[in-house]
Design a protein around this nucleic acid. Structure first.
Lengths: 191, 191
DNA sequence: GTCACATTGTACCATTCGGTCCACACGCGC
DNA sequence: GCGCGTGTGGACCGAATGGTACAATGTGAC
């Protein structure tokens, strides 16, 4: 076990905090060490391949968190509207209302895209798939559901970028509100 | 003048190429030097305050490019539909159909957000304002225009992130098509 | 108690980082 | 031809980078 009072998952959580606000290139070993309270030797004991290994672990943990808190609830049985609203609420909490940057976006940008491509692709695909399932269950046609699901994920990522740039969390919360209102709307015309 | 065969603007263009695909933290002086063909001493001759100065110049150049190619056309007289389509086409070209990452997003993420906050904020604000003007001219109410404009910018940024993550430019081109079709649609219900 | 192994602090490594210095070129007005 | 200011190559800087080696701990199982 890690430093006796810190589980490995907690260590990875702290690594995630650094990665999500410094990115791959901006997160130095010194800072990762400080954030976890572990010396470099301990860090390399748990992550023998170094920084790339640590960030891979962050991405894996994020994936399981998303799966448990977002993807599976979306695919579960129950009111589609409730499922969508659960996703929105989880996302809102996770990004602290738009105050926190996105781990995924941070790893897509910079020099790290190629390193984590397969994991990044898989996470986004699973997210879109799961959301589409909920929409189909809510009476949206399969084709429209896919388009809307992709659009929703795009809008969430975009809102985090723009909210970060303009230092205005309202951009993010407006978007979440819009999504929970529109995602299950009848085919209408737009979309 | 720079190396006689390269204007200062061309130098900044090459800096932009590096920044947009490596980010602030990932762009090393060595690479910026290689990309421009200028030695470090020359780089520091034109940008006395170093890397931050270079990237500030990149951001300034991007701002004037956007102003000339996107913002002003959006505010100009003429068919609103044509103006919106001009924006979409310019953006499509600039990001090479989704193949290139966004300079802005790259500077919002990583450790560089705080350094360029005012410029980033201004660019996004001007973009949203200009787009809203075109929408109002197209008969959209002022309030709805603002929301839609912000939403469009958010979607463009988000589409670039998701397209980059999934290595799938179709995400981006689908979004651009959707935008040129929907931005000027009648109030309808959604949106 | 002792043996094995997980864990850790310390010292160290080469390389690269962003950045500076300076002497020398080059052109151009005079 | 002479100065002068813009540009530039190359050597150099201390600090930080990601990463390693290893000896010393601690902690359990037996």
């Amino acid at each position: 076990m890690p430093p006796a009072q810190l589980s490995l998952e907690e260590v990875v959580d702290r690594l995630m905090l650094v990665v999500r606000q410094r990115g791959y290139d901006g997160a130095s070993l010194a800072e990762l060490s400080r954030a976890t309270g572990l010396g470099k030797s301990s860090l390399y004991h748990y992550f023998p391949e170094g920084k790339e290994d640590m960030v891979r672990a962050v991405l894996e943990r994020l994936e399981t968190q998303l799966r448990a808190g977002v993807f599976e609830p979306l695919r579960a049985s129950g009111s589609p509207r409730k499922r969508v609203e659960a996703m929105v609420k989880t996302i809102d909490t996770f990004y602290r209302g738009g105050r926190e940057a996105c781990v995924l976006a941070n790893l897509v940008l910079g020099t790290s895209r190629s390193r984590f491509r397969t994991q990044l692709t898989r996470i986004f695909e699973e997210w879109i798939d799961a959301l589409a399932v909920a929409l189909v269950d809510g009476g949206v046609s399969r084709a429209v559901a896919r388009i809307r699901a992709e659009d929703a994920v795009v809008r969430i990522e975009g809102a985090l970028v723009v909210a970060g740039a303009m230092d205005d969390t309202a951009v993010f919360s407006r978007m979440l509100k819009l999504l929970s209102a529109d995602l299950l709307a009848p085919p209408a015309r737009a979309h």
